[in-house]
Amino acid sequence: MIQISDLTFNWPGQSKPTLHINDLQIQQGERLFLHGPSGSGKSTLLGLLAGIQTPQQGSITILEQDLGKLSDAKRDKFRADHIGTIFQNFNLLPYLSPIENVLLGCNFSKRRVANLKRANISAQNQANLLLEQLGIDQTTRSRSVSELSIGQQQRVAAARAFIGQPELIIADEPTSALDADNRDIFIKQLFEQATHYQATILFVSHDASLAHLFDRQVSLKEINEVKQ
């Protein structure tokens, strides 16, 4: 699924590289917990995986596609097609309704739209279905985004990440603004959806206490050869 080898990344203008990873592999359908305290190069690694930045050395291969060999525009398209993202918080565009926020997930991807078509479901219905599965009821769906609780917002963001069946879900500290109960429910729901849609989950957090919920855990501190 994901294959990182001999990767070096250097932010422009910095003498020392931020990230150097010899080898990291993630299997299809795996739920990986990436433990990364702040300053461990976590954002940099996510930027590289999403194809926003490109490494100076080494390669990142996702779904047999070497990101380094793609043009900027192709990498943007690749991200739109294959990767769903959930951020820490404030994931949603405040001027769109929850449904519109979910639909935004297939706004820039023809592939996701095609996936929905193949599954014989309209984007609107799929958005409603995902929100239903994630526990956002009808009345909440018609509310304005700013009226939703953070837990509800994160679930809407999760629905957006899943719509159109991307293969990889990257979750960047999605639970850090949630209390313990909500956090566990959210992760449980995330896993249910991942199973249902056969998605791989890369879950990044500084909170090591969540690690036991996952198939495997990797510490970025340990695999990053550049010592901070």
Binding site: D72, D76, A80, F87, F90, L92, L93, G105, R160
Partner: peptide, 12 residues
């Protein structure tokens, strides 16, 4: 933030 969200869903 809005721009980052749009980028994450594939906006170029």
């Amino acid at each position: 933030r809005e721009l980052a969200i749009l980028r994450s869903v594939g906006a170029r």
